[in-house]
Write a protein that binds this DNA or RNA. Structure first.
Lengths: 346, 346
DNA sequence: GTTGGCACTCTTCTTGGATGAGTGCTAATG
DNA sequence: CATTAGCACTCATCCAAGAAGAGTGCCAAC
């Protein structure tokens, strides 16, 4: 079984996918043979289709229906056949205009990016906040809420604010906390979280004696906070959008997907994986055994600031998706977000 | 038309609602007459039902179906017939245990409260962050992201962290911002936002001369921030839960509701209104012209800290809801959250 | 290799009758 | 006079059977 497809097979596969993408209906040999660019009779088309089905690129839902691309078919299409369009100038402008990005803080910016991705694509936007490990520390702040309860506010170089509650063993005054704040900010500002972590470790080891004094306690406090990766938060924007798609008109599918959005753990997992690749990443179908997102595809791209902080954003929609349009959209959104992050912070 | 219902009518209405609540099916005269506590023949029951229908408490979806309570019927039931149960000790314990509230910051606490409400009720949990006007100021922090971009971090007495980006006209150094921070924290900490606002106004009026110096700029900066009410954020938890209910098994209903959850504006509006009332508040059906949440009811209760800060939490579910169970649940959740907020901060 | 023709399959839509739940009305009953 | 039994009537739901339509696979002809 040669995996090399003939020119004709490729042409037909492409035609089928594009037709199916726009109609959502199984496509038959007659329809296809009428298509301009294909000068073959339905019978000939059928022969090719049968071949493609054997190779696993197509399948038919039942005997007397047309063919539908399989996930494998889509993957081949995206990898070899797809011609990515230019992002239309209108959309580009729309993206820049509609977004009053300037007025937003970073979290707002990311949320808004997801919302716009969702609105333009008509699918659901996903944005993941940068993981801590890839983040540059700008500022930390301790606020005493009660004697042994301290609110730690953490600000990254790109202006993302995270916070966490810490329960300390011995009571602290706000004055002590302020000192700790100053110490840590002077010491660590501008380092990456990883650097901060290792610095804390060495510092604490070196100065065992300091353990009881303020600096020691400050170190201890911040190490508590850094234990948990506060990043990796995922914003799901426009969940209702995706359900306009006819393939999700099924109740159980809808509920399953909605549950996945609610829980987010699977999304985090997938996005984390996609984040390891640069550029636009396309995950088609439940590549692994993720039945929760069966029938869905993910188009993602990393955004980043100049200091190496990277997060990821993208769109989740039906596998039957106009990739030629969605890919440049996601790509552009990622660069736009990157640019704004870079211009906002120094 | 006397609005006073006879003892028998009340009994039957109550029976119908309770039956319908548990089955979700229109209830007929035969079913009802078999019910213990009602010693009437189906025919007699029918007479009463016809009366109740005339009064607008019931309706039948079609001639040969049983009766279903109208919104008016439900309202009467909740107002006059309902016997609120005690919250079962198991649930109460469950609520206290499952929630590792202690480890959470305030935002996390509120989110978790919503999640648990959703999980126990099997509907969707709603939590609104306290409005600014009712909030006590604890701390403000300015972080310079770029020459003219300042991130303002705002912490309330109860440990809620809000932040916002401000674009300033003239460049500022972090040092200047730190001074402003100190000034504002000394000046305003512990005041309510309203007090802060008016203080700022008078201060700025009084010292026009100061306008150019640091204090003036700090005042200006904080007045920018306070212009927008950062509170009023709504967390929707367990959106997928509500769709397990058979009444939302309809696609268009589902999408409509989901869209409402996505946008949140209507939720904010409703919660805001409900917040003006103390104690458990029950909004049944689209009392006004809110067709988006047709068929839904809201059970809410305010939570508050000792300093007058109040937010609201609750559950949104189908109007056909076991109010006797949900009401004490929401009530208890609100007091629980209030207690934790009060114990956490001083 | 390509194509027209044809039998075959399978879904979808429609129709019509059977079923059953529940009502409203009326007349009988205590 | 309230209550009840009886009965005709209305509708939604279910099921089966048939017609229509789309598309296939295969074979023989070009």
């Amino acid at each position: 079984m040669s995996e090399e497809l003939s020119e004709r097979s490729r042409l037909i596969l492409q035609a089928i996918i594009e037709d199916y993408t726009s109609t959502g209906e199984p496509v038959g040999s007659r329809t296809l043979s009428r298509r301009i660019g294909i000068n073959l009779s339905p019978a000939s088309v059928r022969n090719v289709m049968a071949d493609l089905e054997d190779l696993g690129y197509l399948f038919s839902p039942h005997t007397s229906a047309g063919r539908i691309p399989t996930d494998k078919g889509y993957r081949f299409y995206v990898a070899s056949l797809l011609q990515v369009q230019q992002l239309s100038p209108e959309v580009r402008e729309h993206l820049q205009q509609e977004s009053n990005f300037r007025e937003l803080d970073t979290e707002g910016l990311l949320r808004e990016a997801g919302r716009i991705l969702s609105a333009i694509s008509n699918y659901t936007g996903l944005v993941m906040v940068p993981r801590f490990t890839s983040t540059v520390f700008r500022r930390i702040e301790f606020v005493r809420l009660a004697a042994t309860r301290v609110l730690v506010v953490f600000i990254t170089q790109t202006g993302i604010v995270q916070h966490k509650m810490v329960e300390v063993r011995e009571p602290l005054t706000q004055g002590e906390l302020d000192e700790a704040t100053n110490y840590l900010n002077q010491e660590f500002s501008g380092l990456s979280i990883q650097e901060v972590k290792s610095r804390i470790a060495t510092e604490m080891a070196r100065e065992q004696a300091l353990f009881d004094n303020l600096q020691g306690r400050a170190l201890l406090l911040s190490s508590y906070v850094l234990q948990h990766d506060l990043g990796g938060q995922v914003f799901v924007e426009g969940a209702s959008n995706i359900f306009e798609q006819p393939e999700f008109a099924d109740l159980s599918t809808m509920k399953r997907l909605l549950r996945t959005f609610d829980q987010k753990t699977l999304l985090v997992e997938l996005l984390d994986k996609a984040q390891q690749v640069e550029g636009v990443q396309i995950l088609i179908g439940s590549a692994d055994n993720h039945s929760e997102i069966e029938g869905c595809s993910l188009v993602t791209s990393c955004y980043s600031s100049h200091r190496g902080t990277t997060g990821i954003l993208g769109v989740i929609g039906p596998t039957r998706m106009p990739y030629a349009m969605v890919i440049p959209l996601v790509d552009y959104a990622a660069t736009l977000v990157s640019d704004i992050l870079n211009s906002e912070s120094e």
